[in-house]
Nucleic acid binder design. Structure first.
Lengths: 150, 150
DNA sequence: CTGAAGCTTCGAGTGCACTCTAAGTCAAGC
DNA sequence: GCTTGACTTAGAGTGCACTCGAAGCTTCAG
């Protein structure tokens, strides 16, 4: 029963009031119920839908595609529509799985590079102050590290 | 020693020749060595850098930030520059780790939803053809599934 | 020798997703 | 009763990262 004003909805969602109206305009959000004075009251149903929209958006789905999904959703329990939504989401999940794998790969390369730069920095620092640690200078460390990994 | 023409580099990188020149123009790629006739020859060093740039780009780093990194890279082994690059990458890694976690969360919600829609679809199908499988009709399956999870 | 590819400069155009402005009206809370 | 917030339509502006095109020249491969 907790309905929200546009301001509250904006705050809760992280979207601006502008954007919320914009989403409603283009049909991404169904027409929101109004108070007697014509102000929007976002129902919990609206809130859940917006939360899900944010997940689609956060995972890079275009407004076009979200619109297609939102349109199908209006058909409710119609078999065709349910199947199409299932297919859309399935496809999206596959896309995300690929992106996830790519991200993990990129992440591991970047972590290696961070390690490389960290080591290079301490080597350079040691060179700048050769006897500050009391450790013997090891020229091999520097010479074997001159080239960045990528 | 394998140098590439702009066309080959474009093909290898997935960038257009236009974009490769554009990247060079704005300083994302150092001036590429030229043949006697003035045509670009991408060295292996260039190729490695471009490959890394693509990783930065693929992980959502803005051109501005890549530019900052590319600029630092020109300082070579200067301690300051090395430390700054290390910090930039470290920060980027942290960003990516957050994104990775968010993506995994979103992915699990979407997988659940796919399952929900799959089950709903088969329930609806069973309803449409009540005796096609010979299985007894279970009204609870339908009635407990009327509301989507989000 | 000819057609495809490369070079330059430079500016305009594209697509996406907002984001904001303006102008004017209406309504609720202190 | 006045400030604040909400409403409307309609259109312009923003930022990003390309992306393309034109003009006019040179050069390489078959």
């Amino acid at each position: 029963m907790t309905t929200l004003t546009i301001r509250q909805m904006a705050h809760a969602s992280g979207l601006s009031a502008h954007t919320l109206r914009y989403y409603e305009d283009i049909g991404l959000i169904d027409p929101v119920r109004r108070s007697a004075s014509g102000h929007r009251c976002y129902s919990e149903h609206d809130q859940r839908w917006i939360a899900f929209l944010l997940r689609l958006r956060a995972t890079g789905m275009s407004i076009q595609d979200m619109l297609a999904y939102a349109t199908l959703r209006r058909d409710g329990q119609q078999l065709d529509s349910v199947v199409r939504r299932q297919q859309m989401l399935q496809q999206h999940v596959l896309t995300l799985e690929n992106r996830l794998a790519a991200l993990q790969d990129n992440l591991s390369v970047m972590r290696d590079k961070v390690v490389f730069y960290t080591e290079l920095a301490s080597t350079l620092q040691a060179d700048a102050q050769p006897d500050s640690t009391g450790a013997a200078h090891d020229p091999i460390t520097l010479s074997t590290r001159l080239e960045p990994p990528a």
